[in-house]
Amino acid sequence: MSHHESPSRVLDWSIQPPYLYSPYVATVRRAPHHPLVPLPASLLERTGPVYGEGDIGPLDHDLTKNAAKNGEPLGERIIVTGRVLDESGRGVPGVLVEIWQANAAGRYIHKNDQHDAPLDPNFVGAGRTLTDDQGYYRFITIKPGAYPWRNHHNAWRPAHIHFSLIGRNFSERLVTQMYFPGDPLLKYDPIYQGIPNIKARERLIASFDLETTRPEWALGYRFDIVLAGYDRTYFEEEP
């Protein structure tokens, strides 16, 4: 019952972006203004959906194959892999990792994306997988292109892959984006720059990884993710 009494903060607001960041114009009318209310940890937030192998199809992790109609998608094939950790540094197994992205030309399949760039008949750009016993995940995909948006004059999003993670309970939930090393657009991007802490921002940039790279086949990138959540607090505090 003591769990119920102790408000337990999960998010570190020196790391997390604020709701209101006016250079990202869409935040202005969508940012809550009231301070967030502390939430005592209850069973509702200490539980969450549990996923298993039955939720994942055999090609779900391979975006070069899971939508292929008559060939391979165009662009640079890449391997994206990494480990999902909690804040105490332990791998988190059974995390549902979902990714989505633009194709090599910088075009999303979404009907509202009107960027003048071609769709790829062999690429949708959505994948999902579960982390293994040690917290590792692995995707095969195409390096996404940069694309323009209308936030400000001549605004371009750096190449990125969207990540959604559902961890061991309702408190372990993260939606973020993975960027690529050396991208000159990062310093002009108000979504990336909306993260106040420079070191925290840079942790969203994957690193090129020669060990992941497969000879004669594809470059490899490594992207580790640290999930905030209750489990760290509880396991450490319990006798």
Partner: peptide
């Protein structure tokens, strides 16, 4: 302690993957 990863917006084009 490992510093937690920062959040980023879900963006406008997520439905084809998440919904």
């Amino acid at each position: 302690m490992r510093p937690q990863s920062p959040s980023q917006t879900v963006g406008p084009f997520f439905a084809f993957a998440l919904v």
